[in-house]
């Protein structure tokens, strides 16, 4: 249900402006300017990157189901429109509590790392409490195991205190969730001689759809992250989790190199020549930078007159399709300029 609701609400925002694959890219958190810009323009930042493990095949399958259940109609150009029952579902579930936990744009990188650290740390401290150092770790990525090792090293002389504090903090956080959510979360934890439930098992035992389970966990992590951020003193152990979490710094490496050069007053053309990149690639970077900069010097690229012309065209077409907008404005205005205005205005 959660997955359906999210897809439907994305489609209702996108209307006929974006194809159904834009929803897929948004949920996966694709690092492309197009997807990041979409998520800003259509005010879908909270759903950005909330389902990194989603497979295209599963996504397509779910979309087909939505179509079969007459909640969604796929148009010829692969855009999707809501049916009346789709609209109905959207309104009925608007207060679906868990949806409000999502804060994708801020947490899409942090959440998976946070969860994996937590899972492995719990497994480690509970096993070491029983002097068992021969367990199969639930997470075996070096980047996670190294972090847990470091923590374990620091705490090994006061393990019992650490364990009960970790318990206390997790207990407090879970109290902020619904009963079912807390149950699902606890069931997926592994400890001493105990292995947590797989997504399949959780779906079966709570009568949920498999595709929803990763979303439920992600939503809960987002909720936890925001509670901890608001009150770090109440969560001394979880506050440690924030150390060297990946920063949700918006722009890609390549774009930040372009930004350095822009700051040194190089023009886009000069940067393209210097970096042996296509001019359009540099334009992509500029749009990306504009998305994240609060004080982007838009006038350097688009005159105020042209800005108003573009904005008028946007209102007119009430669409964010670049083609439609381009068609409405004077020929001297480029696609790049339209995208830049959309990015800066973060129009919705």
């Amino acid at each position: 249900m959660l997955f359906d609701y999210i897809v439907i609400s994305c489609c209702s925002r996108f209307r006929d402006g974006r194809s159904i694959s834009a929803v897929y890219h948004l949920l996966k958190g694709k690092r492309s300017i197009q997807t990041v810009q979409d998520s800003h323009i259509y005010q879908l930042n909270h759903f950005y990157g909330i389902y990194p493990t989603l497979q295209k095949q599963d996504f397509d399958e779910q979309i087909h189901k939505l179509v079969d259940d007459s909640l969604l109609v796929l148009n010829n150009d692969n855009t999707a429109a809501l049916t009346d029952s789709g609209q109905h579902l959207l309104h009925r579930q608007a207060n679906h509590g868990i949806v409000h936990y999502f804060n994708g744009m801020d947490y899409y990188q942090k959440a998976p790392v946070f969860l994996e650290r937590l899972l492995l740390l719990i497994q480690t401290v509970t096993n070491s409490a029983e002097n068992n150092f021969q367990f199969i770790p639930v997470i075996d990525k070096p980047i996670i195991t190294n972090w847990v090792k470091k923590q374990y090293h620091q705490l090994r002389h006061h393990q019992a205190v650490f364990r009960s504090q970790l318990y206390k903090e997790l207990y407090q956080l879970l109290q902020c969730c619904s009963e079912t959510e807390a149950n699902i979360f606890v069931d997926s934890l592994s400890g001493y001689n105990h292995y947590g439930m797989s997504s399949f098992q959780i779906a079966d035992s709570y009568g949920l759809k498999r595709v929803d389970i990763p979303l439920v966990k992600t939503a809960m992590i987002h909720q936890m992250l925001s509670i901890i951020t608001r009150n770090t003193t109440a969560y001394p152990i979880f506050a440690r989790f924030f150390h060297d979490l990946p920063q949700a710094s918006g722009i890609t490496n390549s774009a930040s190199k372009t930004k350095e050069l822009l700051d040194k007053q190089y023009s886009a053309e000069e940067i393209a020549a210097r970096r042996h990149l296509r001019l359009n690639t540099i334009y992509d970077h500029v749009v990306e930078i504009a998305l994240y900069e609060d004080e982007f010097p838009l006038e350097q690229y688009v005159t105020t007159d042209k800005q108003s012309e573009i904005l008028a065209a946007v209102n007119d077409t009430s669409s964010y399709k670049l083609k439609d907008i381009k068609w409405k404005v004077s020929e001297t205005i480029s696609y790049f300029q339209i995208r830049l205005v959309l990015a800066v205005e973060k129009i919705s």
Binding site: I122, A129, S164, L174, E179, V186, D187, G191, H194
Partner: peptide, 13 residues
């Protein structure tokens, strides 16, 4: 068990 009990069991509380 309730989730509270499961969590206690897990952490030996």
């Amino acid at each position: 068990y309730s989730w509270e009990t499961k969590l206690k069991k897990l952490f030996f509380i």
